[in-house]
Design a protein around this nucleic acid. Structure first.
Lengths: 140, 140
DNA sequence: TATTGTTATACTCTATAACTATA
DNA sequence: TATAGTTATAGAGTATAACAATA
């Protein structure tokens, strides 16, 4: 249920989990093309279109055409997007607290450490939810 | 990716994750009606139909009409179903080992303990994947 | 001709509601 | 009239392939 509860929380703000993940990617490294992001997430570029549309309609990110190569749409956060990321950080923190209720701080640290090691061991890309990755994932 | 990798493993055997979960429920307590199971899993009864159909076609479970009330279909494992459950246990074990590679036995125990406490704390029904639960869940 | 983004299409999964058969 | 199971229908989410614009 953890994932569902997080989804419920961000749904109150009108965003889906995949949109939220994309927003975080744009926040982490603004200015990337949709192709670059699709490659990074391991998802078909066509899937990004609807996600980007949604975030752009909510004025959280914007597409900027590259004048040098007008095929590229570089993605950037808007000011509202920056503010939204701050909200998101709060929600993430609250969610983590709620999930770890019943564990004392030392145990939380243990859990985080163990899970992080598993993530590394399994080759998961940091900050990228595995749900984006459909098939093979070729690094740049 | 853990969930996806497990899905891939059982897909080799021709089963989907929801089917696998249902099979386990039937194995745990044979003879329940589809309504009872739907209630237990927190899923609409209509969803069970296709899952049961699939398992029945693969001869892993069987529907038996209750002569006293012919509306009920009690679900039972077939012999093949029992054998399949044994295979499933092996796969589950292998999957867990693969996921925990990199952790020594003591750390695995720690992780299991911490996660179990979270599951209890969050009120998750033991042996039932949260993915079945759509909305409210009313106990019997 | 190749690449970026987009659109068109199809498929899977699921929930809701209508239906049937039994009671 | 009520209940167990089923079928019909519709919606969300996603992948694949075709397409338009640009290079």
């Amino acid at each position: 249920m953890p994932a569902q509860r997080f989804a419920d929380r961000i749904a109150e703000l009108g965003l889906s989990p995949p949109q939220t993940g994309l927003l975080r990617v744009v926040a982490m490294r603004p200015g990337q093309s949709q192709q670059a992001i699709a490659n990074q997430l391991g998802t078909p570029p066509s899937r990004l279109v609807a996600l980007v549309d949604g975030l752009e309609q909510r004025d959280l990110i914007e597409r900027r055409r590259n004048p040098d190569d007008r095929r590229h749409h570089a993605l950037y956060l808007t000011e509202a997007g920056v503010r939204f990321m701050a909200q998101l950080a709060v929600i993430g923190k609250e969610h983590e607290d709620a999930m770890c209720a019943g564990l004392d701080p030392a145990e939380r640290g243990q859990l985080l450490g163990l899970l992080s090691r598993i993530a590394v061991e399994q080759g998961l890309t940091p900050m990228v939810h595995p749900g984006y990755r459909a098939m093979a994932e070729q690094p740049d």
